[in-house]
Computed example of a mutant assay.
Amino acid sequence: MSTQAIGVKIIGAGGRAGYRHVPTLRTLPEFEVVTVAARRMESAQNAAEKFGIPYAFAVHLGPRARGDHPVRDLV
């Protein structure tokens, strides 16, 4: 069994993502939130900075925002 965490991409930077999903996933060692995407790049960047998420994208910016980023395993 692998000990590498599952990389998670969060779509949506506000609402439940901010107060429920990201904080909960951060308590589980099996998961690592590695990407956040939002409608506005500013929102994605703010969420990434707030939660220490390494990558932020605006949803309309192409393949990386749609989920083709190489470090995520779960969207």
Rank of each mutant, 00 (worst) to 15 (best):
N46L: 09
Y55V: 02
E30A: 15
L25A: 06
P29S: 15
Q4N: 13
E30T: 10
G62Y: 04
E32D: 10
T24N: 05
P70V: 09
V75H: 05
D73H: 12
T24F: 02
F57H: 13
M41S: 04
P23W: 03
I6T: 11
G18R: 01
V33P: 00
A47G: 14
R40E: 13
G62H: 06
Q4H: 12
L25I: 11
P63N: 04
A44T: 03
R16F: 01
E49L: 11
F31S: 04
D68I: 04
V59F: 12
A38D: 15
Y19N: 12
A48E: 07
G18K: 00
A5H: 11
N46I: 04
H60P: 01
A44V: 06
V34T: 10
Q45D: 08
F51Q: 04
R72G: 02
Y55M: 05
V34I: 11
E30G: 04
R72N: 07
R26I: 12
F31K: 03
R26W: 09
K50I: 13
P70H: 08
F31W: 12
I11L: 06
R16G: 01
A58P: 00
R39M: 07
M1Y: 07
E30S: 12
A56L: 06
A58F: 05
V36I: 15
A58N: 03
R26C: 12
Q4V: 14
I6D: 05
L74F: 13
P23S: 12
F51P: 00
E30W: 07
V59S: 09
V22N: 09
L74N: 05
G62E: 07
P29A: 15
P23H: 10
R39C: 01
G7M: 07
T3K: 10
A17Q: 08
R40Y: 13
R39H: 06
A37S: 03
R26Q: 15
G62C: 08
A5L: 04
N46S: 07
A47E: 14
A17D: 07
M41N: 04
S2W: 11
E30N: 10
G62S: 06
K50H: 15
